[in-house]
Write a protein that binds this DNA or RNA. Structure first.
Lengths: 131, 131
DNA sequence: ATTACTGTCCTAGACAGTTAGGACAGTAAG
DNA sequence: CTTACTGTCCTAACTGTCTAGGACAGTAAT
């Protein structure tokens, strides 16, 4: 679990932590049931307040990514979203639409876009293989 | 140019305007060179302060989507990003990675993802045909 | 020059988001 | 029970964001 923070980016620290843990979970760097660093030591390592890490973990828990238990720590949750597929589908479409619209303005056509998506899935699978 | 605002969503009004105009431009609902609504009438129609619309237009201009000229109004810009392809590619990859990671947590695999992307491009092309 | 449009700059108030410290509460080992 | 760890809640300060109104400046037609 290596987390890199950029304090100049303007992006909230707790969101940087959220994104990187979500990404690590998707790549298989952390597996379901595996414990995450506890809040205080991680906060010390990252040189931020413990509540900043706590907020990140709280956000991850509300998204169903991790499970925290008072006094015990946090572990990566099973990848079972409780939401109905139709809802999850809508959420993903929102993300995809954003990328598709952005692609138009960045002058990438459908074929190039699909190629990039394949590349990024490959990059993710590769990380899985390494673990 | 129909813009729908949601004041309860928590998302800043000016960003809602930005997104919807970007989307309209990508779908071909507005074409390069075509004039956009002027700031004050649009603000009145949407029942927001003129500076809120002005901020949206300012953001769109900084992204190279529109061009505003003092005293004349704003028009949709040609779709020529001044950035180098390598830079634009990096920006798009960031968007795609976000969607790919989200797909994992929403339990969509690569094949389903690619199918959704195709669907969304189709939906965009369809709008182009209607105009 | 006047009028009626247009976009832009400046400033400030209100509000939400972010981070931080203190205190509290659950867990588990000795 | 004590100790040392764990997550959680409350509150406050700070900061930046968002929205708004007043004043200014460019454009074009009469």
């Amino acid at each position: 679990m290596l987390i890199q923070l950029n304090f100049k980016s303007g992006k909230p620290v707790y969101l940087q932590i959220v994104d990187q843990i979500k990404s690590a979970a998707a790549s298989g760097a952390i597996k379901p049931g595996e414990p995450l660093p506890t809040i205080r030591p991680l906060a010390e390592e990252l040189r931020v307040n413990r509540n900043t890490v706590a907020r990140a973990y709280s956000e991850l828990e509300s998204q169903g990514i991790i499970e925290s238990r008072h006094g015990k720590g946090s572990v990566l949750a099973e990848n079972h979203s409780p939401l109905k597929k139709e809802i999850r589908r809508k959420m993903l479409i929102d993300e995809i639409d954003q990328a598709v619209v952005q692609a138009h303005h960045l002058q990438f056509d459908r074929a190039e876009f699909l190629k990039l998506v394949d590349e990024r899935f490959d990059a993710l699978e590769k990380k899985k293989g390494e673990s």
